[in-house]
């Protein structure tokens, strides 16, 4: 991604023709766009509205008056109780440790592998690429038992490294970053080679900075995937002190009856950090492009 070349987000829509209409068309276009976005947003947010409503109601209110979204009385009990009913704070920390570590390491490993696949010609390149994509295709339900047995054989059950290491490379990130590296102008790389830089130098000083937004995007996706992962941490650990947030929240789901208020309160609390990360990444997108465009 040639962030250096990337366009500054225009303040006005680019002129469509050389006629004298642009401003009116532009404004109408913007109004229509915003209207569409508002409608889309309303549909998108609908389940979250329900979740928020459920989190501020008692269970009896929710099940007794299910057709309305408005609480009979607004209660904060769910948000207060959730910290006691499960060790929310510790599980939050566990989740941060797990997801954070995996993300940090995986972005690096994925970038390296993606760089090799995008920029180097070597025998078997196509086969390796396809193999990597194939790893995306088998449902986890099927690899559950073999992976579990492998971890048990290694003695990695209930350990932090058992939790982290199997996840530090993922095909999605490699695939995505390969696209990003393919978009970097070859000339930039070649120029660096002409200057005598080593491959590592080129990678760290040229390729990575140029694909900043893509790296951030992959980091975001990996963070999300691991933050919300229920099955993997539960597969590897039985020790309650190592449990992550999804595992804790799952305890409010019963076979027959669930504590919906607590469940939704927990789910909303758990997603706030992810929203913050997303906003941070998106700002960097826009900011990054804006500043480099000025050079």
């Amino acid at each position: 991604m040639s962030a250096i070349e990337a366009p500054v987000a225009p303040r006005r829509p680019p002129p469509l023709t050389r006629s004298s209409r642009p401003r009116t068309v532009g404004r109408l276009g913007t109004v229509l766009t915003v209207a569409t976005l508002v409608v889309v947003s309303a549909v998108v947010l609908l389940p979250f509205v329900w979740m928020v409503s459920a989190s501020f109601r008692t269970q009896g209110d929710l099940t007794g008056n299910p057709t309305t979204l408005w609480p009979a009385t607004i209660t904060f009990d769910n948000y207060v109780n959730i910290w006691q009913r499960i060790p929310f704070g510790r599980q939050l920390l566990n989740t941060v440790a797990f997801a954070g570590t995996v993300t940090a390491v995986s972005v690096l490993l994925d970038a390296m592998a993606a760089y090799a696949l995008a920029r180097f010609q070597f025998p078997g390149r196509g086969v390796i690429f396809v193999l990597i994509i194939v790893t995306l295709m088998l449902p986890i339900q099927v690899t559950f038992v073999p992976v579990y047995n492998l971890l048990a054989d290694l003695g990695w059950i209930n350990s932090l490294h058992g939790l982290v290491i199997p996840r530090v490379a993922d095909a999605f990130g490699i695939f995505f970053l390969r696209q990003a590296f393919l978009s970097v102008p070859v000339e930039l790389e070649d120029a660096a080679r002409i200057d005598g830089a080593s491959e590592w130098r080129i990678f760290f000083r040229v390729m990575l900075p140029l694909t900043g937004p893509a790296l951030l995007t992959v980091a975001l996706f990996n963070l999300l995937a691991n933050w919300n992962d229920l099955l993997w941490p539960l597969m590897v650990t039985t020790d309650p002190s190592m449990q992550t947030l999804p595992a804790g929240l799952a305890l409010f789901k019963g076979e027959h009856v669930s504590d919906y208020g607590l469940l939704m309160a927990g789910a909303l609390l758990a997603l706030l950090p992810m929203v913050a990360v997303f906003l941070f990444v998106q700002r960097r997108f826009i900011e990054g492009i804006a500043t480099t465009g000025l050079k």
């Binding site: 490993l109 994925d110 390296m112 592998a113 760089y115 090799a116 696949l117 180097f120 070597f122 390796i128 990597i132 790893t135 290491i165 199997p166 530090v168 490379a169 993922d170 095909a171 490699i174 491959e199 990678f203």
Partner: peptide, 11 residues
């Protein structure tokens, strides 16, 4: 190969 190795090993 060096760049690919770590990820390939884990995968």
């Amino acid at each position: 190969a060096a760049f690919l190795a770590p990820a390939s090993l884990v995968l």
